[in-house]
Design a protein around this nucleic acid. Structure first.
Length: 658
DNA sequence: ATTCCGCAT
DNA sequence: GCATGCGGAAT
């Protein structure tokens, strides 16, 4: 009722401004493709040959455990977290087992069910493990294994598609932009199309010749053009199907061969490529996947759920209207929540078809300007791009609900230590992949009693060896600031949730990365020893310039006396800033090859020069964007910002000897 | 910077 | 539910 009035419209995801819906392009399901369009490279979301796929793993957590334990994939298996289930594989679904069910019930439905409890951190342990009887009072869930497996899958996408953009959308799914690889393949298969025929009536703007016929048979399930039954898209039969790929079958392979378009050819090629990668993933890693292939992200996502598990579905443009019409719109991404509910109530609607006669103006009046996004989605239009996200998250959080709430401030450090152990491990592993990964801040969240929650953040020291101790003590400090140390307080302390996390995690770019490549990775076996090079960033009040101090911290772990004055042999003096620029000292010990040192020094020199150049640019330029290599990876600009120096002004900063 | 919210898997 | 992750917005 009135609750729908003050609804915050969902965020506008498309880049551009709101479309004039007279933008015929997106409405045209059968555009004529010209040579110019085929040869063009940068049509973006308006590319008439755009092809996007969404590929996700079937019951991913369950599959992870099944593979880890070498269990026959046809056996019913669930993943348990405390008393409930967080994943149910397809064989188990056949017994009617669902998530959000108690293990008791599940076992009753299927006595031979394999139940695996998710790994947990035990207090004091540095690594998670699969313990006998994990207790929510003393243990903390670890999803590390799933993250690691997820990365393996993502890597296979990336390797299988050097020219395609990959957006990791969640732990078990990724969007893939096939537009470019498909175009390359079209030109490879039909080389004649590379040239505009001399007799083409309108030169490059002439339409392509008629497309070749398509053999869909092994490419996946083609969503039929005329099937109006909602059942087909909703039901999940959960066929027994642990084994081979592909299992796709087309009920109606061909009652549309005369209507084949070049976009269908593009879809078919994408399906071929997608199938190859999926088979590869299955044979190399063991995971079965499902994919949807269509002209944009939203349709790809919807299409992926057409048939699961272990299959792929293809949505031809011609089938879009009939596929969408009976679709319950609350299944659509971003319409699963409040907005979807409000719309359903407002118009007493449940399917996309029910909403098709609501005009744009009407919707905007009720739900705000931005509901054009909804209006378009209902018509199969989605202008959002596949944004390259290789899997390095911008934040990393470890959280714990406390069924047994903390009542005394002194209990904080215990859980903080557990969370810190997880963060340390995760950061270390992330850096095995991407050495040049640097978290900027550490945040501590706590929830008090019912609803109130507070958080506190602080800069995290720049250190390559972010050990449990470093993280935990930084966390403890935040805890003190947040909770205080006094155990006597007005409303008695009652903390039901603690979370510790890194934010602002960034990958160093080009020049910087070359340096990072030379950094010795922290010893994985014994990370308690070693030298931390941390840097304090301080503001110099006088001239508003950032100064840095180099701080060498020696960690405990028995043995050795602190080494304090490193011997800087490999260094140079920059004639621009007349600073001595040195290689990190830990590169200098353990008899590193001189040649390598030289290369590292050279990389450092290049990087340092780049740094000055970037500064130069940021001073001079105001209009044009800086070259990519000088931009922080997260996308904030360097050149256009008012700040005196780019955020990563440097590794130089960290390595410059005073 | 902090505190929310809402969305999603 | 739980454990995450993301982005936006109000303060």
């Amino acid at each position: 009722m009135s609750s729908s009035t003050n609804l915050k419209p969902i965020s506008w995801r498309g880049k551009g401004k709101a479309a004039d819906s007279a933008d015929v392009h997106f409405n045209d399901l059968n555009p004529t493709i010209t040579y110019r369009q085929l040869h063009s490279r940068n049509l973006g979301v308006k590319d008439p040959l755009r092809v996007i796929a969404l590929c996700d793993s079937d019951a991913f957590y369950a599959a992870c455990e099944q593979i880890r334990l070498g269990i026959d994939p046809s056996r019913p298996l669930v993943v348990q977290q405390w008393d409930s289930l967080i994943a149910v594989n397809y064989p188990a679904r056949k017994f009617g087992i669902t998530r959000m069910e108690k293990i008791k019930e599940a076992k009753k439905k299927c006595p031979e069910l394999v139940v695996v409890h998710v790994a947990t951190y035990k207090e004091g342990e540095k690594e998670p493990g699969y313990w006998e009887n994990p207790d929510t009072l003393t243990h903390k869930v670890s999803l590390d294994h799933y993250r690691r497996e997820s990365m393996k899958v993502i890597r296979m996408f990336q390797e299988g598609l050097p020219s395609g953009e990959i957006e990791k959308a969640s732990i078990d799914e990724a969007f893939i932009d096939f537009t470019r690889p498909v175009r390359e393949e079209i030109l490879r298969r039909y080389p004649d199309l590379a040239q505009v025929p001399p007799d083409a009536p309108q030169g490059p703007d002439s339409p392509l010749p008629p497309p070749p016929p398509i053999m869909w048979n092994d490419l996946g399930t083609v969503i039929p053009v005329s099937d109006l039954s909602p059942e087909s898209s909703v039901t999940n039969t959960g066929e027994p199907n642990g084994h081979g790929l592909p299992d796709d079958d087309n009920e109606s392979v061909d009652n549309f061969d005369d209507s084949i378009t070049w976009h269908d050819v593009a879809l078919a090629i994408a399906a071929e490529l997608m199938g190859k990668i999926r088979r590869d993933i299955h044979s190399k890693l063991g995971y079965s996947t499902s994919a949807g292939i269509a002209r944009n992200k939203f349709l790809a996502k919807l299409t992926a759920s057409y048939k699961k598990p272990n299959s792929q579905s293809i949505l031809r443009n011609a089938a879009i209207p009939s596929y969408l019409k009976p679709m319950p719109f609350q299944k659509i991404r971003f319409l699963g929540g409040k907005l979807g509910k409000a719309i359903a109530e407002e118009y007493e609607a449940s399917t996309v078809g029910d909403l098709l006669n609501i005009t744009l103006e009407e919707m905007q009046r009720k739900f705000g300007e931005e509901s054009i996004w909804v209006y378009e989605i209902l018509r199969g239009i989605d202008r959002s791009e596949v944004k390259e996200k290789s899997g390095v998250n911008k934040s990393m959080m470890a959280a714990k609900n406390l069924p047994n709430p903390i009542t005394k401030p002194s209990q904080g450090p215990h859980w903080i230590r557990v969370l810190a152990a997880e963060l340390a491990l995760r950061l270390r592993e992330a850096r095995e992949e991407t050495p040049a990964l640097w978290p900027k801040t550490l945040v501590l969240h706590v929830r008090l009693g019912y609803d109130a929650s507070r958080s506190k953040q602080a800069a995290f020291p720049f250190t390559r060896d972010a050990s449990v101790d470093v993280i935990a003590s930084a966390g403890d400090k935040l805890w003190k600031e947040l909770v205080g140390a006094d155990s006597s307080r007005t409303p008695p302390l009652k903390i039901t949730h603690v979370a510790l996390g890194f934010t602002g995690i960034e990958v160093m770019e080009a020049g910087q990365r070359t340096i990072a490549a030379f950094l010795k990775p922290p010893s994985t076996s014994n990370q308690a020893e070693g030298v931390d090079v941390s840097v304090k960033r301080k503001r110099d009040s006088r001239d508003d310039v950032e100064v840095t101090e180099r701080v060498v911290v020696r960690r405990k772990s028995g043995s050795d006396s602190p080494t304090v004055s490193p011997d800087y042999t490999a260094s140079f003096i920059c004639d621009k800033c007349s600073k001595r620029i040195s290689l990190p000292e830990d590169l200098m010990d353990d008899g590193l090859d001189d040649v390598i040192k030289e290369e590292a020094l050279e990389a450092l020199r290049v990087e340092h020069t780049d740094f000055h150049y970037a500064q130069e640019l940021s001073r001079q330029l105001s209009s044009s964007a800086p070259p990519r290599k000088f931009r922080p990876s997260s996308g904030e600009q360097v050149a256009t910002t008012k700040k005196k120096a780019p955020q990563h002004d440097g590794i130089a900063r960290f390595f410059a000897a005073k």
